[in-house]
Every structure is written in C-alpha cells, then in structure tokens.
Design a protein around this nucleic acid. Structure first.
Lengths: 251, 251
DNA sequence: TTCTATTGTCTCCAATAATTACAATAATTC
DNA sequence: GAATTATTGTAATTATTGGAGACAATAGAA
C-alpha cells in the first residue's frame, strides 16, 4: 500500500492547476450529525476530503469521483455551496510538510505547493452504507461529530461552518432527511435528524404535523421494537412522481 | 483607443489560468430590473462582464476590480452565487472569433482559448449613479431588461437565470432593495423593486405593513410631486446600528 | 389486569398574513 | 372655496399557520 505512492500522486499534466474542491460529507448515526475527516500521515493535520479536477473533466464529475473513492458509494446527494478564493487561504508550508511526511521529494515549484481556489461541496449520505477509505496521503478517515471536530488545517473549519449554515437554510427547502436516513424510518428518526442539523430540540407534535402536511412521506407498517409502548409507523420518502397522487380524485 | 490593445490584453503570466469570473450586474430604472451586457467588437456576441484573477489576488478583489472598471463605482453590493465548472462550457471557437475580430493574432495554445471555470457573482447597483464602460474587447455595454435580453453567448443565459433565482431567494433575507434604490424613496418605489424581482404584482397594503414591521426603514418628509392626491412619505434604510433604537426605552 | 412509556391526533390559543374598508389628503375642476 | 379625483396610510376583519397542551391508543412489562 505504501510502495507506489509516487505513481498514484496527482501529476501536473493531468490536472487543472490552482483549482481544487473540498467535501463536507455529512452522515447521521442515529444521534449526532457527523462529517468525514482525513488525518494526513505522520503530521497531525486534519482536513476535509478533497482533490483536483482533471483537465477535461467537469468539476462535478471530479467531486463525484472523490466521493466514490472515499465512501464506496455512487449516486450521492451532492450540492456545491461556495467557492473559497482568497489568495491567503493556501499554505505551501503545510502542504510541504504533508508531502515530506510521505517521503515525497518536492522541488520549490511543485504544483501542489501553489495557490489553490477551492470549490466547496457538501454531500449527504446514509451512515450505515458507507465504507470510508483514506486517500493516498492519509492514514485514516473518520467520522467526527460536528461539535467535536479536531482542529482542522487551513480554512477547513470555515468551510465546514459555511456548509452547516447552508445545510440549515436548505433544511425546509430540499429533502435533506431523505439522504441521511435509511429507506424506512420512524417519525422520531426524522425528527432527530432535524434536531441534529438545527442544533436544538423541536416540538414533537408540531414537527409531526408539519411533516405529514408536506405530502412527501408514505406511511408503511408499524415497527415493533419490543419496547413497552405504542409502536410507531415506518415512513419512506415518496418519489417525486407519486406526490399528490392521494389527492387526485378527478383528472 | 484601438492602438495599444495588445498591451492591455491580459497576459498569461499575470493571471491564474483556467479561472474566470462573470458578473450579473442588476440595476433598477424605476420600472424594470435590468442587467449590464457587453457586445464584443464586430462579432454580434453578447456576454456578461467578467474577467480573470491575478496570480496573487483574492477572487473577490478581482471581481471588485471589474465592477469598478465597468461601472465607475466603488463599494458595490456583491454576492458570489455559483461556480460553473462543466468541461464543455468553454468555447475556444467563440473566443477565437472574438480575439480575431479585434485583430489579435492568437496561436493555437493562447491561454484564453483554454477551458475556464467561472465563479459567478451578482451585484446590485443604483441605476442612476452608474457610468457603464465597455472592456478592451467590447464596443458597447448596455442595460437590458431581464426579460428582453439578446441571445447570450456560451452559458451566460444559464448564469443569468441562476443569478435571478438566487436573488429571489435572498429577497426577504438580505436588504436587496437598499442597493437598487436611491438614498430616499417612496413605499411604492420599494414595492416596484420587489415586483420587478419577483416578476409579479404584490398587494399594496400587505407589502406596506410587512416592510414597516421589519424595522429597517426610517420615515422622512413627504414627497410632493404636484400630483392630485395624497403625498407619500419618503423612506431611507436604517444603518444596521440604528435598528431598534426607537424601541429601546431602558438599557 | 394494571402500569409505563411512548405515539398519533385533536383542540385551543396566539401569531402572522391576506383582504377589505375607509379616512386622509394634494391638487384639479367648477 | 367646495366638490372631485387619485392616490396613500392605517384600521378592522377574516383566514392561515404554528405552538402548546390534552388525551386516547397501544405494546409490552410488572
């Protein structure tokens, strides 16, 4: 695994210079909202997953490639939310430390030491289906609760903060919950996703009424857990096509 | 004006390759929402204003530089809204036509013929204060109502559509009207800005009540236009500091 | 059978927003 | 100078939404 690192390292000719992307990959373990964080080999530097764009590749394609490599999953909910373009955000000193910790000789003009603009995206995934895989320069990739993150390098904390801010804004506009939960879930599961994202409790009765009024849930059989109380219904998200089909009497 | 074009043309060494920005500059003439569109010399190509980022310059700085050059104004409301990164969006054939129409010899590898990622921004300006100025490759820059745009080159119509979409989403969140109106304005002026952005009429009484309840307007003297009816009040936007000062009894 | 911990739904109430109504008023007309 | 006209500002009325509590239903344990 450590032998052919030089070969797998991105080369200058293959990628667009000065352009990168970073990924805030959100998952929900049933209790907390978490994101995937890489730790670079022998440096103590923690960072968001990210990468570079091939010279003839859509930016979105490149991001999906990274997502696939880090999670083992395809067809992941993905949204671009901001491009970080300040001249001072890049830190060649840190990048050099990382490269050298991996026994990579880098001359003064090595392209990865240059300034990079980063197109930041967030992704939402089903926690249970993921198999996190570190990249070439990292020895680990792990889930961290969003309020228990290690110190992140460069501006990655700022990127994470912005991702969470945008995620909150989108919470009622887009079907966020759909992508963080398994196929079938209880109303309580859904509520806990909302609470984890918003960082505060919401009222059970109000929440339930609001969700049911939105016409995007299908109710299924009850879930019997063995607990000594009324069993909750299971729900799934309707596909867009089915929406409103209950109400269509005449057409 | 046509003599030293070569010198003023952006050079490879000065700018980051493959990275551009485009600007959707909104103005309101009292009736319609308009944007500034460039027409390139002798080509019939219409485009959004835009440019490139210097190697040691913040992206935002670069965009402000362009805004200053095209409008003559400083301190303009500016917001980044999306980065367009598809591999097929760049059109070297169109770029070559534009360069050649300006009598610029360009070899096959000239950097401006390469692929570009564009970080799109929108700006809001006071229509009356602007002095639009074309760039080096254009012979005109003009206001066009958003529903009467000429055919725009490349993906510039898509960029414009997205800008308007985001502007609408932000209409109640940010002080949009402030930046499109003169210092003092009537409630009707403000309403017309909202209607132009939303593309639909809103109710006068509801609108007035909503605006007054938001605590960001200061009421001034009445405006006597000579018309045979009740004169409306003039308003201005409060500076953020003043907000709520009316209500602060004890502190 | 009783008890406990939930879940699903209903009612009541407050806050917000839509709609209508109407008085105030700046200039014009007679 | 009184009646007229075209607004503007605000109050009153009605409808919609959301919050908070009440309560019946119920799956299992005691």
């Amino acid at each position: 695994m450590a032998n052919n690192k030089e070969q797998r390292l991105p080369s200058h000719e293959e990628y667009l210079p000065h352009l990168a992307y970073d990924l805030v990959i959100f998952g929900f373990n049933g209790k907390q909202l978490k994101i995937l964080i890489l730790e670079y080999n022998n440096t103590g530097f923690f960072a968001l997953p990210g990468g570079f764009v091939k010279r003839n590749e859509d930016v979105e394609e490149a991001v999906k490639r990274c997502l696939r490599e880090r999670t083992g999953l395809d067809n992941i909910y993905l949204e671009q939310f901001f491009t970080f373009g300040s001249a001072s955000r890049s830190r060649p000193d840190i990048m050099r430390t990382i490269l050298e910790a991996n026994d990579l000789q880098t001359d003064e003009n090595y392209w990865m030491l240059n300034r990079f603009i980063s197109i930041a995206h967030y992704a939402l995934i089903n926690f249970d289906e993921v198999h996190p895989t570190p990249d070439e320069l990292s020895d680990s990739i792990n889930w961290y609760a969003i309020n228990e993150l290690p110190t992140l390098m460069m501006d990655h904390q700022e990127i994470t903060d912005k991702a969470l801010e945008v995620l909150r804004e989108n919470l009622d506009k887009k079907l966020i919950g759909m992508n963080l939960l398994p196929e079938r879930f209880t109303m309580k599961d859904l509520q806990e996703v909302y609470e984890a994202i918003l960082g505060k409790k919401v009222r059970r009765t109000t929440f339930q009424r609001k969700m049911l009024s939105k016409d995007f849930l299908t109710r299924h059989e009850k879930l019997f857990t063995g607990a000594a109380h009324k069993a909750p219904y299971l729900y799934s998200f309707k596909s867009q096509d089915d929406k409103g089909s209950q109400n269509k009497k005449a057409s």
